[in-house]
Nucleic acid binder design. Structure first.
Lengths: 363, 363
DNA sequence: GAAAACCGCGTTAACGTTAACGCATTCTAT
DNA sequence: ATAGAATGCGTTAACGTTAACGCGGTTTTC
């Protein structure tokens, strides 16, 4: 398959026996072309697979592409969103020669008002693309549907039904939950008994899927009992401790605990206070607090969603779609990356760039 | 920090009171400029941080950038290199609008002649960048040193001393080995005894580091005995079986086995024939044969080096350096990605794009 | 029935960079 | 002394795309 040079607008014009102006008018639907000529040109464009040269186009247009990221405050979810921002920032820097500009729009993920105020502050006229996390699902969907359909958007972290993103970036939550089960079982040396999964109270679809994956691991295993508990509010010490007390009263000797999101550090800390730090515990996301407890041995495994990678990919794929008009994969998978105590960097590292510097070569 | 538009050559020229031609001559060291003028221009360039617009430059030059990948035959190392090629191919397609072209140069990794013939077939005049794997270290270094120093190159998979690559892409082998130890220990339910690591006979520095990491895990653990064995030739059944027979005579009841490269499938298969499939076994790389045995339960864990990702990154970073003249990180870390039987795709999938489609969302 | 609007198309000037070319001077060699 | 080379600079034509503009010719409007 010989790779041949891309055909130019000038060559199309020559073949059609018209000027480049006419071809351009066809290409951009600017009218003022006879049906006959239009069809001839359209046929040629198709036949030779004409694609406008993105460099020349950009040079001429000098267009700035303005992307917005709409996400929870960077310090919410134990700092998880801040880690996403780092990847976005890096992509923005790399792509700045191509006119990419990014604005960060943050809201309080527990306040509808905050969501709407922030969302509404994004002017559709000035927006060439959106990076979205599937937070506040019902509100988010409503907002997306009232947006001009010309605005492309990508989802990271997961996706939402009834929407048509350019691409979805995210990790398979089912596999993650399954793996959590498997690792928990190993850490408990395959002891029979009850294994708990603590679910935050959340409408998140992918947290549900993590739990399904976890349960799937235990299905058909004789003598093992998975137990799902939903905590109404992980963020406040009182509710959390009460929740855990009840849990431990019901199940005095859990063989392992899986916390299906980043708040695993609160669970581990509470457990530690009750001298129960021997119970294997697995959770999500290498946020600073979790990292500390992993290092101290109070958490056994963390599943990373590679937030910086996701942020980077979100920007890059949006750029590929909007600027280069290239075809984008409908789904960008994120590898399930496991952190144990032993594959953390030895020194306290700048957590900002943690994901980037995570693995070092020996010298 | 207000982001302001990049200054253009025309503006520099105006400020210096000369024509753009003169500025261009300074920028490209084409001479024919008085020292006085040159210095004035150089000062202005520095002051305003002038960077040539990569799009305009490319548009004018219509330059094709020709990169070469010099690697072992794509089916060597159980098909590992072929997986790298897939990532390279994808990057090449994405970057083709920017004039990136890639040629694959393959050699037999066990033949010096093959190496030299292939390496010598790359004409330095036609080469704008190289993708290299640190195979045949001493030869490779010699070849690199006799190359014109103007040719940039990146290493993937690992790196080599005495060279100055643009960047090094690779996984921390020490962490990988350490993790292999940890997981093996868990799979053996922490039973005391001897744990083996099988090392291929290889000059590869990063295989040595994997072993060091593995040994580091066992250090100071009472009652656990790590045992390193080097196999002269993993590729031939006879040598392999003799090697394993000797090993099992010396160590009749190993608690677990770590194979420090992709040939873990041969070990697992031989073990299976001897009815020893209960021994936990961990190895490297999700090549087709390994995938099959993982699926069948004859291998317990595979550490993936994400070859497609590495190939993709190698091309992309080279492009960023050569075409965009952007600053590149000196090291691109590759996450340690673990595959268990359970996080493989259920159906037989096209192994070509395995790494890309690995994780699926539920629908 | 004249003015205005419209149609279908070609021409052209950018966008920023590059390098060939041209044109005076000034220097070098015979 | 003078051809010829070298110096120091400005001018210009690309690269491919875009969109404003212009221009004859037809159709509509009042």
């Amino acid at each position: 398959m010989k790779r041949t040079r891309q055909i130019t607008i000038r060559e199309i014009a020559a073949k059609a026996g018209v000027s480049i102006g006419t071809v351009d008018r066809v290409l951009h639907n600017r009218g003022r072309v006879s049906t006959e000529t239009r069809e001839k040109i359209e046929a040629l464009v198709k036949k030779f697979g004409y694609k406008p040269n993105p460099l020349a186009r950009h040079l001429k247009l000098k267009k700035e592409y303005h992307f917005f990221i709409l996400s929870p405050y960077r310090d919410e979810d134990s700092g998880y969103w801040g880690m996403v921002f780092n990847g976005i920032q890096r992509a923005a820097e790399e792509l700045s020669p191509f006119g990419i500009r990014i604005s960060f729009k943050e809201f309080d993920r527990y306040s509808r008002d905050s969501f709407w105020n922030t969302a509404r502050s994004i002017s559709p006229d000035d927006c060439d693309g959106l990076l979205l996390a599937p937070i506040m699902p019902s509100e988010m969907i409503r907002w997306i549907l009232e947006l001009p359909p010309s605005i492309p958007y990508v989802f990271f972290d997961a996706t939402l039904p009834e929407t048509s993103p350019i691409t979805e970036i995210g990790q398979d939550p089912y596999s993650g939950g399954f793996l959590a089960g498997k690792l928990l079982c190993l850490f408990a040396l395959r002891e029979r008994g009850t294994y708990c999964v603590i679910a935050p109270h959340s409408e998140d679809y992918h947290i549900k899927r993590r739990i399904e994956g976890f349960l799937a691991f235990w299905a058909n295993r004789e003598g093992y009992w998975p137990e799902v508990r939903t905590c109404a509010d992980m963020d406040h010490r009182e509710t959390r401790e009460e929740f855990l007390n009840t849990l431990l009263k019901d199940i005095p000797d859990p063989k392992g605990i899986f916390v299906a999101n980043a708040s695993v550090h609160s669970v581990a800390e509470t457990l530690n206070k009750g001298n129960l730090s021997h119970i294997p515990i697995i959770g999500y996301d290498l946020v600073p607090e979790n990292e500390r407890l992993l290092r101290e041995g109070l958490i056994d495994v963390l599943i990373s969603q590679r937030p910086a990678y996701q942020g980077y990919q979100a920007v890059y794929q949006l750029y590929r779609h909007v600027v280069l008009q290239q075809e984008i994969q409908k789904k960008i998978p994120v590898p399930i990356h496991l952190y144990f105590k032993e594959n953390l960097l030895p020194e306290s590292s700048p957590d900002l760039e943690y994901e980037e510097t995570m693995f070092v070569f020996a010298d």
